[in-house]
């Protein structure tokens, strides 16, 4: 598997390096995660390790989420057992709130195993995948950094609007793909090649340089970068 772990963004602060310089960091509570499933070439067509982070109370988890982590009795399970079909291995842990797969060889992993932030202890830089803060239906000035229009000189209540979009006689139409207003944020964002400042195995924390996508409390995937 790619070296990586699931976590939750705690917030930003600043720390000092050895020479006393201030470093802005984002604190991520990373792990411990459980291995929920192993995807194999024969069965699934690809290899990956499925990790789960953050326990979800059983009363909130639906049946499929509970069945993912522990065997549930059902007519079908009994029928399969009677027919001599081996049940798939279960991790035997609590249901998880955040489940993601990390692609790569499953060697050295087994279902139910606990993965801690220690896997990233010798990693210099990581990619952080999160969901950006939602900004709703945003205008062009916020969404695409358009300049808007003038405050005075006869501009009529269109100060934050885009300008013309279709030109004149030629081409007499709007080109496809033109930047316009619309849903902004609340999308998957990958921040690549983010420097690791510190890995705190005792408290399951990782400190990365600068910002990370999403709100405080948002779930993120932190994995070793593949950038050179």
């Amino acid at each position: 598997m790619t070296k990586g772990i699931l976590g939750r963004k705690v917030g930003m602060t600043q720390v000092f390096d050895e020479s006393g310089n201030i470093i802005p960091v984002t604190v991520i509570e990373a792990g411990p995660c459980h291995v929920l499933q192993l995807k194999s070439q024969e069965r699934d067509g690809y290899e990956a390790v499925q990790l789960g982070f953050d326990d979800k109370p059983r009363r909130l988890a639906n049946r499929s989420e509970r069945g993912q982590v522990a065997p549930l009795s059902s007519k079908r399970a009994k029928k399969l057992a009677a027919a001599g079909v081996e049940a798939s291995a279960k991790p035997d842990c609590e249901p998880k709130r955040f489940v993601r797969e990390l692609r790569g060889s499953t060697e050295g992993f087994e279902i139910g195993q606990e993965v801690s932030v220690g896997v990233l202890s010798d990693v210099k830089a990581v990619d952080i995948v999160g969901t950006s803060k939602g900004r709703g239906y945003a205008g062009v000035m916020k969404r695409h950094n358009f300049a808007g229009q003038r405050a005075t000189h006869g501009v009529k209540k269109v100060h934050r609007h885009t300008g013309g979009t279709g030109c004149s006689a030629y081409p007499s139409r709007t080109f496809k793909g033109l930047n316009m207003s619309g849903q902004y944020g609340n999308a998957k964002v990958t921040q690549r090649n983010v420097k690791v400042v510190k890995v705190d195995e005792e408290n399951n924390l990782i400190l990365v340089y600068g910002a990370a996508p999403g709100p405080n409390g948002g779930f993120v995937v932190v994995k070793a970068t593949n950038m050179v």
Binding site: V10, G11, T13, V15, E29, D200, N203, L205, L207
Partner: peptide, 9 residues
């Protein structure tokens, strides 16, 4: 999360 932040700081 404030506890975690205090631990870091």
């Amino acid at each position: 999360s404030q506890d975690l932040m205090n631990k870091v700081e």
